[in-house]
Design a protein around this nucleic acid. Structure first.
Lengths: 243, 243
DNA sequence: GAGTGGTCTAGACCACTTA
DNA sequence: AAGTGGTCTAGACCACTCC
């Protein structure tokens, strides 16, 4: 039988085989692209799309004229990759349990917001739904999410949604599809209440990810800032040179 | 006449035209991919490679069935993008002047190093060339680079190279080509001497980028940690959903 | 239905490595 | 010379948007 592969399932299958160690030889060398094309019965384009993803995730590296090799990188706790970085980290994190242990919402005016999106002008009477969520990973403090939603787009936000995935909520209940997100990664000092959540002293730092979330149509729907415990949060990237 | 376009020059030309505002209509809508293919006389593949880069850089977004649009994002000082993140920020930064204002090097043993690469085992008698470089951007403190080079690969490092681009030095003087870099972005506390350079108090934070630099052949050649002034450093990323 | 971006195939040629 | 990854072309079909 011939399974049909799309790029995502192809990528997933290769990752699975890399982890099982059933694809590479004992030196960590993978079969050539031509052999993999035949094996999976996909075109060069599709195969290389998948290999490119594997490369960005740090699983392999490729050398022109020589071949593709597994790139071991030691397991690190709470390592986020660029592709992991979801709407507000609502994505499944390899079976780990993320819980919201506290959440508040209120309506605020322009003068009350703590930060702004990158390229938006608001009128003076613009209102926002301010949401603060305190979340744990495996029952340990993991992040604080401080968001502003635009009420004329999202309407009201139910209490139930506050404790679940905002991304799914907007998609399923409101029919809103987020198309892309601009991210600004910085290091900032914690306020007292956030520091307390992480059991840190006030003025200790935090790795922050500012998100500007846009609908597919290009409209800003929310902007937020996520604070991570600086002791735990690491963002991983892989850079290939000569591009 | 027909200029031949490769993907890099194609990408650069579209960026140029976006900035000049000579490509999009008044609503920020770009010509369709088919029109751009004809205009530049390239294949769909090449054009979409270029558009994909523009998308990751935050210049445009694309909507299936509708078209491609310019995505304005406000200019921010010292915004790094993932593709900017070079060997040690040696890349040209839009004409801004980066200078090394202090540099030291010494040979150290395994027990003396402050941090380790992600997936490497060293023998107990492994030696390293430790390099510390203090660098300014437009004469203001910008970053401190703390690196360990593997002497059996790079040999000695000349004093001249310490004040220039290590990347160019390895490439031109040593014939070593860095193929890829793993990056680990974190937030850490500054030591006294680094804090002093940034004119900050000790224990103030810093955005750090840990690099593991590998030769094209997959051998580790150096590992380093770059400390940025947390008040100035912002890393930009663009995430497209439904991938 | 026409036009748009998203995906995928088949094939070609090039640059580089290895033998 | 053979094999590898890197680049590029031409063309097809699909999913979605707009009229």
């Amino acid at each position: 039988m011939h399974k049909q592969w799309d790029i995502d399932s192809l990528t997933a299958d290769i990752i699975k085989r890399i982890k099982e160690r059933t694809l590479a030889d004992k030196n960590g060398k993978l079969p050539s692209e031509r052999k993999l094309m035949d094996y999976y019965n996909v075109s060069r384009y599709s195969l290389r799309q998948a290999l490119s993803k594997l490369s960005k995730l740090g699983y392999i590296y490729q050398i022109q004229g020589r071949g593709s090799y597994i790139h071991e990188h030691r397991y690190q706790a709470n390592l986020m990759t660029q592709s992991d970085l979801g709407f507000t980290e609502d994505l499944a994190r390899e079976g780990k349990r993320i819980q919201t242990v506290g959440a508040t919402q209120r309506i605020v005016s322009l003068s009350e917001i703590d930060f702004y999106p990158s390229n938006q002008q608001f009128s003076d009477d613009q209102l926002f739904i301010e949401v603060e969520r305190f979340r744990t990973l495996e029952d340990k403090p993991y992040l604080v999410e401080h968001s502003y939603y635009l009420p004329e787009i999202v309407g009201e936000i139910s209490e139930a949604a506050m404790y679940g995935s905002m991304f799914d909520y907007l998609s399923k209940e409101k029919g809103l599809t987020v198309g892309f997100i601009d991210k600004f990664i910085r290091c900032e000092l914690l306020t007292e209440s956030y520091a307390k959540f992480f059991q840190l002293a006030t003025d200790m730092p935090s790795l922050t990810v500012r998100d500007d979330s846009y609908l597919r149509e290009g409209e800003l729907v929310a902007f937020s800032k996520i604070y991570y415990d600086y002791r735990n949060a690491t963002l991983f990237m892989h850079k290939k040179l000569l591009d």
